[in-house]
Amino acid sequence: MSINWFKYSSPQTFYPLAGKMTPWFNWIAGILAVVGLYWGFFETPHILSEQKQYYRILFVHVPAAWMSMWLYLMMVGWAVVGLIFNTRLSFMMAASIAPSGAIFTFLTLWTGAFWGQTSWGTWWDWDPRMTSELILLFLYVGYMALQSAIDDTRRADRASALLALVGAICIPIIYWSVNCPDPNECTALHQQSSMSAVEPNIRIAWLIMVFSFWMYAFAIAFMRVRNVILERERNAAWVTELVGRKK
């Protein structure tokens, strides 16, 4: 069976589809979050001493950090699709993902500050990863600010898409320069992988949480994109009909 993907690239056909999928994503997100957190809190081995219970904030912190980066990539992906194929729905998707990305970035910084306070005794440290995350937040904010500053939707869509693309090209350079402010000592720059160093049990809880966050991000992005569709297509016949029917 082949699905005609282009059929769903029109806002009119995508609107009901997104509406049908949103509750599913919400349910899955909720169930996975309960399972993940239960696992993280009660099933992880008690390798942690009593003083190290703060460690468990990482079940939110790490998945949120991953999401903040993936959502930026998703946003840029939709933006590029929009710029190439000139499809309105792609721009709407990019615009709907941005706030979720910004929220996850903020959540990462926030939970990170708690972690920092308990483990290092400071709310903020200019650690490369924290700095990168902060800069990512700036990029999200810039994208959303540009989008909302332009009245003409077409220009807003295309200009912010281009900005997202420029940001994506600059991110590796920014990340590298933050990680390695002194190039004389950077020959052995190696980001130690946090995945392989941890207990498999903890890893499972993390993965479940990541899926839960993914589903949540889908649900929220779809809800937001439905609003955007209604707002932008308010003069289209099908929207007038839809809204009229509900009244």
Binding site: L146, A149, I150, L162, I174, W176, V178, P181
Partner: peptide, 26 residues
Amino acid sequence: LTLGLRGGGVLLSLLVLPLYIPVLIY
């Protein structure tokens, strides 16, 4: 990108300053 926008100057700084970071660092 900010051509002709109201409050373009402040917006410009929001967009551009994060991208300046590598130059600042090195």
